[in-house]
Design a protein around this nucleic acid. Sequence first.
DNA 1: AAATTTATATATAAAATGTATATAGAGAAA
DNA 2: TTTCTCTATATACATTTTATATATAAATTT
Lengths: 129, 129
Amino acid sequence: MRVKFNKNKRLCTKFGFKMNNIIYAVFLASLIEKPLYGYLLVEKLEEFGIKSDFVPYGSAYRILRDMEFSGLVSSEWQTEGTGPAKRVYKITDKGTEFLRNWLVDAKKNLETLEKILKRIGGVLNEQDK
Amino acid sequence: MRVKFNKNKRLCTKFGFKMNNIIYAVFLASLIEKPLYGYLLVEKLEEFGIKSDFVPYGSAYRILRDMEFSGLVSSEWQTEGTGPAKRVYKITDKGTEFLRNWLVDAKKNLETLEKILKRIGGVLNEQDK
DNA sequence: AAATTTATATATAAAATGTATATAGAGAAA
DNA sequence: TTTCTCTATATACATTTTATATATAAATTT
C-alpha cells in the first residue's frame, strides 16, 4: 500500500527539498494557473527552470495520484479532442492552502541552507589563508 | 553491499539537498577545522544551525564509514584519554577537493531553488488579485 | 551496585525514487 | 496498409535513502 502523502511528518521536515517535494509544489502552482493533465504538467516544468527529464513520467503520474489521494487536486477524464484520453487535474482549496504553507516553510529552509553554505564557505576561505 | 558514496551520479545531481548530502558537507567542513570523532561531529552540527537530533547516530556513523570508503576522510582509533575508544576522523585532500566542488554546485542549486520559489510566489500573488 | 552518559556499530524496516515495461489512440512515413 | 513514432497513462519492480531498534562496552554519576 502506498504511503499517504504527508501522513508522516518527516516528509516535510528537515530541509524539505527532496525532488518530489519540489515537484508537488510546482505542479500545484501550475494548476493554479489552469487545469492540466500529467503529460503537459511535466513539460511545463521547464517554465519553472526544471529540466523535464528530471522527473520520469512514472514518478509524475504517481505524484499526481498521491496528491489526489490527499485531496490536494481532483481529476476528470477528458475524452474529447485529439489523441489518447487525458486525465485532467485541477487544484482544490486544500491544495492551494497546502502550497501557501509549503512556500512559507520552503523560504525558511532556503535561508537555513544559505547560512550553512556561508559557514562552509567561511571554513574553506579560512583554510586558504 | 553498501553503495559506494558518489558511485551513482544521482547522489549529487538534481538539487542535491538530500539531508545526508548536507551532512557529508558539514562533517567535512568540521574536519577541516580539526580532526574529530563521530559523536562530537554530530554535536557540532548545532554550530552550523542544524539540530543534532536531525541526524541519528546510526546514520552519522554510516555516513562517516561511507566517506572513509570513498577516501574523503581517514580514521584512527584513539584509545588514550577518558571514556570509550573513539574513532577519530581527519579529512583527506580528496575530501577537501570534494567539499570545494560540492559548495560550487550547492550554490547553483540554491539559486535555482530561489528562482522556483519566486515563481511559485508570483503565481500565488497573481491569484490574490 | 545500579543507572546514566559517552561512544561505536549493525540489522531491520520504511520511505522515496528510478527503471522497465505494458497499453493504446493518433498521425506520419514507408 | 502496416509499420513507426509521438502522445498519454499506468503499474511492477528494483534501488537508494532514511529512520528505528538494538547490541556492545567503557566511564561516570547516583
